[in-house]
């Protein structure tokens, strides 16, 4: 088994936490993991991407070759489309739909962006911001996304739940509960 993910988002949205949560779940199942992030200058409100590779055998490259990713997991709709060349023909795209409008009039019409996503062979749009707000805070939108990806990831949902617990345990039980609620909302939204 080998499973490659490309993450997408805008600096400050918490996409690296999404990657960290899934990676931590994979490790708890004794799988091999390689991850790549770019920090620094590009985080300042710019496009941010990262990769996570999960496998039951040794993985060498931190980067995903073109046309081979199993999943694009994005926290912003426009950004979800930026790395399509990495997505394998059978690969799936899962994205949150709330836009980050920090590029003025350069941002295309929302309907055009969502139509592109809908026309892909295998895509899912998740209203992560609304679901996170209902769970307690829009800041949990990234955990909604982790939940939404649970159905396609080669991992046990319980490992992902434990990873969410581990990520937030420092911040107290109410924050943990809120993020778990967001996770479940994401799972349910994907199943709909």
């Amino acid at each position: 088994m080998k499973y490659d993910i490309v993450f997408a988002g805008v600096g400050g949205q918490g996409i690296l936490s999404v990657a960290a949560t899934i990676a931590s779940a994979a490790i708890s199942e004794n799988l091999h993991v390689k991850q790549s992030e770019v920090h620094g200058m590009s985080q300042r409100g710019g496009a941010v991407t990262g990769t996570l590779r999960i496998s039951d055998s040794e993985i060498h490259s931190p980067l995903v070759p073109l046309g081979t990713a199993d999943l694009i997991l994005s926290i912003e709709p426009l950004e979800s489309l930026r790395y399509l060349e990495y997505l394998s023909p059978e690969g799936q795209l899962v994205t949150a739909i709330a836009p980050v409008q920090n590029i003025g009039t350069n941002y295309p019409l929302m309907e055009e962006v969502l139509t592109e996503i809908r026309r892909l062979p295998n895509s899912r749009q998740i209203d992560a911001e609304r679901l996170a707000r209902e769970a307690g805070s829009t800041r949990a939108a990234n955990m909604v996304l982790v939940g939404a990806s649970a159905a396609v990831l080669p991992l046990q949902p319980e490992s992902l739940r434990n990873a969410v617990r581990k990520l937030f345990e420092r911040k107290g039980s109410s924050i943990v509960e809120m993020n778990l609620k967001a996770f479940e909302a994401g799972r349910a939204a994907y199943a709909e």
Partner: peptide, 13 residues
């Protein structure tokens, strides 16, 4: 890999 089905031009960010 995959391509934009409708050819939308993606602005840089």
């Amino acid at each position: 890999g995959q391509k934009l089905p409708g050819g939308l031009k993606l602005p840089g960010r």
